[in-house]
Design a protein around this nucleic acid. Structure first.
Lengths: 345, 345
DNA sequence: CTGAAAGCGCTTACAG
DNA sequence: CTGAAAGCGCTTACAG
């Protein structure tokens, strides 16, 4: 004879419904609903009884039913093109964080930069009746707009949409370049070179532009008259430094397009017998913590505040869901992080 | 006089329902449902008419309604403790990827290692009637089981549950240590040291254990009789190498607990005038690509195949959802990646 | 203050 | 082959 399955560990026990709670509390399901949702017109002691019953049954309302009824699901789609990307991740974290504290849940989709896959995911998300969409890019270059034929609002984060009517949030790369230049100027440097990354990246060009502007305002220009563009690698950082030292033996600061480039720069400077920061200051971008802090010396760098980009995107999406969409590009200010590579002389 | 809103760009157009399709096709909603779901008992030309109508209205079925009815939502919760973690991310990617090809969507939740937040997220996920849960850890040490009082199955990935009845997927760190040791042995090295990471991490100890076993089988032991434990940093890698070179000037290989430690080791070896790999081979763990490939020379390392861990977790969860739960720890084999730091002499 | 009823959008027996 | 009806779990006017 089989023992009865009274095991509370039974994984497949059906979740409690309003009906179960109503039965236990001896009231109607309407009353349970009102009690649980804090509606008026329920006697305090009835409400109390209902709450206890719900507690005992470990009742959690079925969001599907609620969503079906109210038209709001409290879910949002996060469409990323590259989960490996160091840049899209913090943005995702910021967004998840901003939503997570409330009652909104995030659907994660990785399209791998494939437009077909992206369409597939969007269709699935729309089928799940998300209240909105955040599209996270992995580089700062504008991406194609998804258009406006959607039943829900869309916010683009990190990579802005190429349609100015869309809502986009980016970090301010021009401002970042300015900040970097300002910092080395304030450290008393005047013979400043720039080793940038891949010239096809908007982020590379924007950061250079900011630096050039700021130097210009101080009556200076970059050593050699322009930035050296190359690759986002340490190797390029090393090679560029060797070239620069040959041409400008008296350079006293190097602005680098990324932390990785800066690490290469540090290595090449050390191997050329230049001491950092006393002879040459090195300034980086991105604040990729494991890279920046493990460098010798640790890197001063510009933090792009990507979590803030994600958080801002979440907020703007929320507003748009509530009908207050504000198209255009919203730019998040970056932040200087000083470490040993630029310490004042 | 207001123009009529026939604008297809209207963001707030209500998504089409079965009823809309039925009306356009001139049939009942039951017939629409059957046609769309490929059920029998529909005349081909009727089906065709329905399909065209659905197409024209850009119909996507409301998953909420489907879920409410069928009891399956086609959603899964991914609970991570640390989205910054280099380790939990690839696992998430693998899981998302495994699901993404099907019709399952993933809810992403970051608990930040906070048990309260974790409970909060679990409650929300259960309210959304996910079909199952994947719990992703950020280190390989066993984590507390969430218990068995859940209406849905749970799979633990990367960090196993401390309850052996739970389903866990990990990468094989002992095997990884063996692989690393085998490789340097096959490169003809015999005087082998081990610079490990933080001894409080199971991953650190397991990798050492695998290496010691393999060396033992070859009649060897580690230089100094045991591994040097320290921190997961380049600085520790540099310091440990200096210590080792002083004690064992003739060492010909170093196994490192991580890519970062190995980079430190490379730098210290170079600065001590040892050439890698001709004099000393350096072998790492993790295959953190930007670190490993940018090293001088690029690092041979053990890839933990974390995407595979995530993928396997997704598969096991799927099985468990279908009632074929297989408790215990499932271990994923690691993979040797050879680069310049160990090239055969 | 409380409850019966309608309805959100779908699927599935069950009649016709 | 096609459609009317019930029902998934909830919320919200509307009666009582």
């Amino acid at each position: 004879m089989m023992p009865e399955r009274a095991d509370p560990i039974d994984k497949r026990s059906r979740p409690a419904t309003l009906r179960d709670v109503a039965q236990l509390a001896g009231v109607s399901i309407a009353t349970v609903s009102k009690s649980l949702n804090g509606r008026d017109h329920v006697r305090p002691e009835t409400r109390e009884r209902v709450l206890r019953a719900a507690e005992k049954l470990n009742f959690a309302p079925n969001s599907l039913a609620q969503g079906l009824l109210t038209g709001r699901t409290g879910t949002v789609g996060l469409l990323t093109s590259d989960m490996e990307g160091r840049f899209s991740l913090p943005v995702m974290m910021g967004a998840e964080d901003a939503f997570g504290t409330g009652s909104t849940s995030v659907f994660l989709c990785d399209a791998r930069g494939d437009a077909i896959r992206e369409q597939h995911h969007i269709r699935a998300l729309l089928g799940r009746r998300v209240d909105g969409l955040i599209v996270v890019g992995d580089k700062t270059d504008p991406r194609p707009s998804l258009g406006h034929a959607f039943p829900v609002p869309i916010v683009y984060a990190y990579a802005p949409s190429d349609d100015p009517r869309d809502i986009s949030v980016i970090s301010d790369n021009v401002g970042a370049g300015s900040l970097a230049a300002e910092h080395v100027l304030s450290c008393g440097r005047r013979r400043i070179a720039y080793v940038s990354g891949d010239v096809t990246y908007a982020a590379a060009r924007d950061r250079v532009e900011g630096a050039v502007q700021t130097l210009g305002a101080a009556g200076l220009e970059l050593l050699g008259g322009e930035a050296l563009y190359g690759a986002w690698t340490e190797e390029w950082g090393r090679g560029a430094i060797r070239t620069l030292l040959a041409r400008f033996p008296d350079l006293d600061a190097v602005l680098c397009g990324s932390d990785q480039i800066a690490r290469g720069a540090l290595d090449a400077l050390r191997e050329s017998g230049r001491s950092v920061p006393s002879e040459v200051a090195v300034m980086a971008h991105d604040n990729w913590v494991p890279i920046a802090t493990q460098a010798r010396p640790p890197l001063s760098t510009i933090d792009m505040r990507l979590e803030l980009v994600g958080r801002r995107a979440a907020e703007l999406l929320f507003e748009a869901i509530n009908g207050e969409g504000r198209g255009g590009i919203h730019s998040v200010a970056t932040k200087l992080v000083t470490r040993g590579s630029t310490a004042l002389v």
